[in-house]
Deep mutational scan, measured.
Amino acid sequence: MEVRTIKVFTTVDNINLHTQVVDMSMTYGQQFGPTYLDGADVTKIKPHNSHEGKTFYVLPNDDTLRVEAFEYYHTTDPSFLGRYMSALNHTKKWKYPQVNGLTSIKWADNNCYLATALLTLQQIELKFNPPALQDAYYRARAGEAANFCALILAYCNKTVGELGDVRETMSYLFQHANLDSCKRVLNVVCKTCGQQQTTLKGVEAVMYMGTLSYEQFKKGVQIPCTCGKQATKYLVQQESPFVMMSAPPAQYELKHGTFTCASEYTGNYQCGHYKHITSKETLYCIDGALLTKSSEYKGPITDVFYKENSYTTTIK
């Protein structure tokens, strides 16, 4: 009895394709271990004539594949690729409408935090270190965002349907971005203890939790000093293409032309909904596939993004 075979390709990165001759009487799992086709788990399936010449994702289970996976995804987590594939199996079914010149995501599976993050990423200057993220990001900007969303979920250790947080998501993504040249110098002034300067680099240099107003941050924000008295913390120097200011959701007025974009969060910790506000020729609110415009805006804002380049204080 002759062994019926077909020729397929296996890959971990969709760049390096490895030619395989597979036995049609055995499952993919018996031949390769966990195997995925377009995100779908085909591990328990036997090869079919229609699979001839198709590319299958496999887990990096030998040295060659491990090197290829690390170079593309910059992670050695053995569960990463499987999590990416199972997320992709959902995100490829989502709709990605162009809204006001940006790629958004039609609401499904509690994905409003991903839509808000995706919209924000198209408006701030950011370059990702893992080629996987950078490639998928370019495709997302062009309207094909399924891979990018699935990668975000995998890097953030999230599953489809789980509630997510924009600030946490951005923080994970910033860790995989090139923020080497970003720098922030802060000064804390206390009447009792004097003053202390701190220099922050990388992710810490672009994120701040405690106030939404970048102007206020430049002037000074009140913080408790270690001595128990009130101290003032203010920005001395900022070198970065953008800054992200966050605070627990509270009524906040966004003035046209003073910011790049913002995240609105309605609801409580267990259950809520994100919308995205962007400042173009007027203010726009993007909620999944829905767009509304207004000249002014007041609502429960939790993150505001500002364009920056270089700032030095005039406070002496």
Rank of each mutant, 00 (worst) to 15 (best):
T5P: 10
T5C: 14
I6G: 05
K7C: 14
K7A: 14
V8H: 04
F9V: 09
T10L: 15
T10C: 12
I15L: 15
I15S: 09
N16W: 06
N16V: 10
L17A: 12
L17V: 09
L17D: 07
T19E: 15
V21L: 14
D23M: 12
D23I: 15
S25W: 10
M26R: 14
Y28S: 07
Y28Q: 05
Q30K: 12
F32G: 06
G33Y: 07
T35Y: 05
T35K: 04
D38P: 06
G39W: 07
A40M: 13
D41R: 07
V42Q: 12
V42K: 08
V42I: 11
T43R: 11
K44C: 15
I45T: 13
K46L: 14
P47L: 05
H48M: 12
N49L: 14
S50C: 13
E52Y: 12
K54N: 14
V58I: 11
V58H: 05
D62F: 07
R66W: 09
R66F: 13
A69R: 03
E71N: 09
Y72G: 06
Y73S: 05
T75R: 07
T75V: 11
D77I: 03
G82A: 12
R83V: 04
R83T: 06
Y84E: 03
M85L: 12
N89Y: 15
H90E: 10
K93L: 11
Y96G: 06
Q98G: 06
G101K: 04
L102W: 07
I105R: 06
K106P: 05
D109M: 05
N110F: 03
C112S: 01
Y113W: 08
A115S: 11
A117W: 04
A117M: 03
A117I: 07
L118K: 03
T120C: 14
Q123N: 07
I124Y: 02
I124M: 04
L126Y: 05
L126M: 08
F128K: 03
F128I: 04
N129G: 09
L133P: 03
Q134I: 09
Q134G: 06
D135M: 09
D135N: 10
A136M: 08
Y138H: 14
R139A: 13
E144A: 12
A145E: 03
A146Y: 07
N147H: 14
N147G: 10
A150T: 02
A150I: 02
L153R: 00
Y155R: 02
Y155G: 01
K158V: 02
V160S: 03
G164E: 03
V166K: 04
V166A: 09
V166N: 02
H176M: 09
H176G: 02
A177L: 05
C182K: 04
K183H: 10
K183M: 10
Q195L: 12
Q197E: 13
L200A: 09
M207Q: 08
Y208R: 01
Y208M: 09
M209Y: 15
T211Y: 05
T211H: 07
L212M: 04
L212Q: 03
Y214M: 14
E215V: 03
F217T: 06
K218F: 03
K218V: 06
K219Q: 12
Q222G: 08
Q222W: 06
C225F: 00
C225H: 08
K229W: 09
K229P: 02
T232N: 06
Y234L: 07
L235A: 01
E239C: 10
V243R: 01
M244L: 04
M244Q: 00
S246I: 00
A247E: 00
P248E: 08
L254C: 00
F259W: 01
F259I: 01
F259D: 00
T260N: 08
S263Q: 03
N268K: 12
Q270D: 15
C271N: 05
S279K: 02
T282S: 13
I286T: 07
D287E: 03
D287S: 02
G288P: 02
G288W: 03
A289I: 10
L290Y: 14
S294T: 13
S295M: 13
Y297V: 04
D303P: 00
F305Q: 00
Y306I: 01
Y306T: 00
E308V: 12
E308M: 12
N309F: 09
S310K: 12
Y311I: 11
T312A: 09
T313Q: 15
I315M: 15
